[in-house]
Design a protein around this nucleic acid. Structure first.
Lengths: 348, 348
DNA sequence: CTGTTAGCGCTTTCAG
DNA sequence: CTGAAAGCGCTAACAG
């Protein structure tokens, strides 16, 4: 039989010292009004026996766990793993533990994870939506129940809640403008996650830049990957589509880590040289972007900062006594890293 | 005041139906011997009200949580994030939740995380040692207490426990042999994590290949990064060291994801061309290896498989009634992906 | 200043 | 077949 480790409890201390459990509890919780003698006695014995409170019992009692749940699509991503580091750095400092769960872009998994976290008496939840998710009623329900909740990056459209995001419109606008100003006119936009608001925002930024320079939006130059499966395959289809167009695009603005990487792979596979045959700018966080065959020009997000801020906001919400009724949206700025994947046809 | 969500309990059901809590419990747990009428009554009501058992209460009661803890150095790593996916895929299928924690290579964090996991009534723990860790008594204590425990990749040297690893010796041997057979004689070895057994094993594989081809081991060609801090900086120092040697090495065998990437960056920074000026083979899992300026030849590990296997072994250990006294070590094989970062000087 | 008691949600004897 | 009661470890009134 598996012997389970049985840590020392308050009862053990009480018995050993001939005190009552409540006295022990009070000492350990440093409650006002205990005799110095007993106090010392208990404290010493506790230290000696390496007493540590049982967090499970605490949770059951207080419905509070000093831990926060994180729900992300995927952990195997430069972006999300950096965000997680940011979350941890802040949470850890404030005495919270972090429980990370992945949805793998599935709404079902998202719901299960949320459900689980709630039942684990988690104090609050940090979410970046799965791409499959359209109906966000499970989050609305959560909010109704009073669970502190903060969204980041992939935030919901119509929900009044604390959100952390970047200036997606602006980021895409700048990238597109850069492409135009360096001489490209036929600029394709390759994206995914049709359901997500960030996808729209970026598309709008792209369109706005186009229209600022009187470039007509061409529906043939827009492709949105389903991505509920093999991204590589979808992206290859997109690349084939673009590159077999009569009016082949001169540049592509890709969105998303995976899509961007897949796009480069597909381009390589079909023998297109970057930027000779086609220019590329990626709205993505790719740590190794400068090591690629053609160092990749990117629009990237301050992932660590986002995580940190999200955790800060969440913990503030958790610790504020009053039910939170004001929800702010924080917008951080993206950074544009010009490398060499976009050809400088003619710089004006 | 923050209103906490109050899920429906067995008591609620009992009250509503005029039954006793124990009857409800029995129905819900499908215990032998309940009237079909009451059974149906309870079941229907439970479904209707979306009753779900409170896992915290279950943990407190049973000291069992159906969740397993994972302790890794870092989540922002292709290798570890893939391992985590493997763990999840297996755990999830068997009804376990996965709690991931990071040590950031700190022994202190490692101990805290372990401690926390244990107190969370975790059913078992999966560990890959932090590089700082030399003393593994905290793990030995864990084992004594009967906590199911499985190590992977960075496994401890002298501890009788279940381990999952790869043939590190063999992997390094093959890489070195490949380098030698493609005409390199002066082969440097750049590594980190001096404390880890895998570091030794790989070093030994490297040395063995050298000696097989009568190449003398040269201590100047070996550099082990401290890595408790800025890896980039350490690696730059190493590169400067190697490249300013009178007898400059013709190739480097790097070990580790971060070190390998940093090495390429440093080489780029100082203007050395790969493989023209120096050849490179990396013992690392780098998903974008084939997209680099010079596609990187690598020895890589089946990360997903490792995670899956580790979780399987752990869950088996958890579910086996008897205390586990036999500990197996599973050795998976690395794969060698020949790309173009090693020059083919003369192939014999 | 300290002890008694009840209860968080659940399982599990022990009675009936 | 079902109910009462104890207990997992802890906190928090309520008494003394």
């Amino acid at each position: 039989m598996m012997k389970k480790y049985k840590p020392i409890t308050q009862k053990d201390i009480a018995d050993a010292l001939g005190l009552s459990i409540s006295t022990v509890s009070r000492v350990l919780n440093n409650v006002y009004g205990i005799g110095d003698t007993t106090k010392k006695l208990v404290l010493d014995y506790a230290k000696e026996t390496e007493y540590a409170p049982n967090p499970i019992a605490l949770r059951l009692k207080k419905c509070r766990s000093f831990s926060i749940g994180v729900v992300v699509p995927e952990v195997a991503s430069s972006y999300f793993s950096e965000v997680i580091n940011g979350i941890e750095s802040s949470a850890y400092r404030k005495g919270y533990h972090v429980i990370v769960t992945q949805t793998h872009e599935s709404t079902r998994r998202e719901m299960i994870n949320i459900q689980q976290l709630v039942y684990q008496s988690i104090d609050g939840i940090l979410v970046s939506l799965s791409s499959e998710t359209v109906d966000i009623s499970h989050f609305k329900a959560l909010k109704e129940k009073g669970t502190p909740l903060v969204f980041f990056d992939r935030v919901p459209k119509d929900m009044d809640v604390t959100k952390i995001a970047v200036n997606n419109f602006q980021g895409a606008f700048e990238a597109t403008e850069y492409l135009i100003r360096s001489g490209h006119k036929k600029i394709a936009h390759l994206t995914s996650c049709a359901n997500l608001m960030i996808t729209d925002e970026r598309l709008n930024g792209y369109k706005a830049a186009l229209s600022k320079y009187y470039v007509q939006f061409n529906a043939n130059y827009f492709y949105c990957c389903e991505s509920h499966g093999n991204v590589n395959f979808e992206v290859e289809k997109a690349v084939i589509h673009f590159m077999s167009l009569r009016e082949r695009p001169e540049a592509i603005l890709t969105v998303g880590d995976k899509v961007s990487v897949s796009c480069i792979k597909a381009l390589n596979k079909f023998g297109f040289k970057i930027p000779h045959d086609i220019s590329l700018v990626a709205f993505a966080n790719i740590t190794e972007a400068d090591m690629f065959k053609t160092p990749l020009t990117t629009v990237s997000q301050p992932a660590f900062e986002i995580g940190k801020l999200a955790a800060d906001k969440l913990i503030k919400q958790i610790e504020d006594k009053l039910a939170c009724t004001e929800f702010e949206t924080s917008i951080l700025t993206t950074s544009f890293d010009r490398r060499s994947s976009a050809k400088l046809n003619l710089i004006r």
